[in-house]
Design a protein around this nucleic acid. Structure first.
Length: 420
RNA sequence: GUGGGUGUAGCUCAGGGGUUAGAGCACCGGAUUGUGGUUCCGGGGGCCGUGGGUUCAAAUCCCAUCACCCACCCCA
């Protein structure tokens, strides 16, 4: 068997890296202008960090979807399945709560989940993550959503609609879960197997079921939004008011439920068309209390994560993929054995200013020009016995076919000219 | 884990019992021994996913197995 990449992993080939670079640089610009600063936490953490944050009923835990291993000292380590826990651990560890509020942090990098693969779902995948810490009010929620929206828009995804919901405060959830249990337990036998399991662990997630029977049972029930407490309701209304004021399109999602247990109040997602079943480009929410459970002071927070592969897929579908990398300003063509060395030496000197490539073996002019063409070069520069005698290179502008002889010392300037 | 689909050249895919397995694209060379893109000619490349079976004969039919893709579940 030929060696191959591990299931659920893949190689980003040179043709694709421009899209990755643009995604990253756009993120730097959009988030940077809002004062969000980059933080680079490690890719793995002590397992307790994720155990404390992710919560016992999350699928990550229930389905054993985390990559976990022991180091030589017998400590359990886990490859991050998401960013929030690690970022908040760093926030606590470095006393960042003493910094001006809110503390705004973003990250970019891989995350790992031992799931079954399909379009838009990988075992090593990448996220852009953003956390806004220390501010309790709806304004930062709205800012978080706006940043996500503006980032995706800047990348070239128009007409985005945010799905906005609320999972309420802990007491609201408790009350709502009690309501759900009361309503559903008498009819438990009518539920699907997974929903029956969820009814025990985290009843709200029954609302998520795609099983038609489940959906019929759930259809007549109150949604979490119907039973929000006054404080959570006011919070949600506040977020919505800011989004209205800023012209950001959203739809209220009455039963938007998060897969991780730590969410409070605001929850949101952005979906795309045409990229398969895994259509969530990004999702996030508020997690007041999570910092505290990681050993820090009581600290409100809200954040989101964006799936890089899904966004790139959506950009491809939208025809908004970036242009390929530019070719060299000049491609040097040695036409005899001596010129091979001359081309390499000149290339080295010119590279202090420009992108220069050259053929590595003696080339006839026809082949050399073809090489230059394929490299996407602006100019080709030929060197043979004739040029050597005169101390020049024959410089040809490939698009127009114009050519002239340039003294070697003047090559750098000549090659930087862009004829009209 | 379950269901469906697909495995033939680097890539996209034909060929569905009968001799040395094909096309397009890509790559290399020639037409053109100092002038590219187009064109023409030629070339290198294949355990036909793997193992077993049926048959005079298997890329082709049967069984098993593995891998990949899509979907369920769930999420980014």
């Amino acid at each position: 068997m030929r060696s191959r990449a591990v299931k659920g992993t893949y190689d980003v080939l040179p043709e694709s890296t421009p899209a990755w670079r643009r995604l990253r640089s756009t993120t730097e610009t959009v988030l940077g202008r809002a004062g969000v600063r980059e933080i680079v936490p490690p890719i793995f953490e002590y397992s307790e960090i994720f155990d404390k944050s992710v919560g016992p009923s999350a699928d990550l835990v229930v389905q054993k979807e985390m990559y976990r291993f022991e180091d030589r000292g017998g400590r359990s380590l886990t490859l991050r399945p998401e960013f929030t826990a690690g970022v908040l651990r760093a926030y606590v560890e470095h006393g960042m709560h003493t910094r001006p509020t809110p503390v705004k942090l973003w990250s970019f990098g891989p995350a790992f989940r031992a799931e079954n693969v399909q379009r838009g779902r990988f075992r090593q995948f990448h996220q852009i993550n953003c956390e806004l810490l220390g501010a309790p009010g709806p304004l930062v929620d709205a800012e978080a959503i706006a940043l996500l929206h503006d980032l995706l828009q800047a990348l070239g995804l128009p007409d985005l609609v945010v799905a906005l919901g609320s999972v309420g405060d802990p007491e609201d959830r408790e009350a709502y879960n009690a309501y759900l249990r009361e309503a559903l337990e008498p009819r438990e036998h009518e539920l699907s197997d997974t929903s029956r399991e969820r009814l025990r662990l985290n009843p709200m997630r029954v609302l998520d079921s795609k099983d038609e029977g489940d959906q019929r049972l759930v259809a007549d029930l109150d949604t979490p939004l119907d039973r929000l407490g006054d404080a959570a309701r006011a919070h949600l209304d506040g977020v919505a008011a800011f989004l209205d004021a800023w012209g950001i399109a959203y739809e209220l999602a009455p039963s938007l439920v998060r897969g991780l247990d730590y969410y409070r109040r605001t929850a949101f997602e952005i979906h795309a068309q045409g990229i398969g079943a895994q259509s969530a480009l990004a999702g996030g929410g508020r997690y007041d209390g999570l910092v505290e459970s990681l050993g820090g002071p009581p600290t409100p927070g809200i954040g989101w994560a964006l799936g890089v592969e899904r966004v790139l897929d959506a950009l491809q579908e939208a025809g908004a993929a970036p242009a390929a990398d530019a070719g060299p300003a000049v491609f040097l063509v040695p036409m005899d054995a001596v010129a091979v060395g001359e081309a390499a030496a000149l290339a080295r000197r010119l590279r202090t200013d420009v992108h220069v490539e050259h053929a590595y073996t003696e080339r006839k002019p026809g082949k050399g020009l073809r090489d230059a063409d394929r490299a996407g070069a602006r100019y080709a520069a030929l060197r043979g016995a004739r040029e050597r005698e005169a101390g020049v290179w024959t410089l040809k502008h490939l698009a127009s076919g114009d050519q002239r002889e340039i003294p070697e010392a003047a090559m750098s300037a000549a090659v930087l000219e862009v004829p009209a």
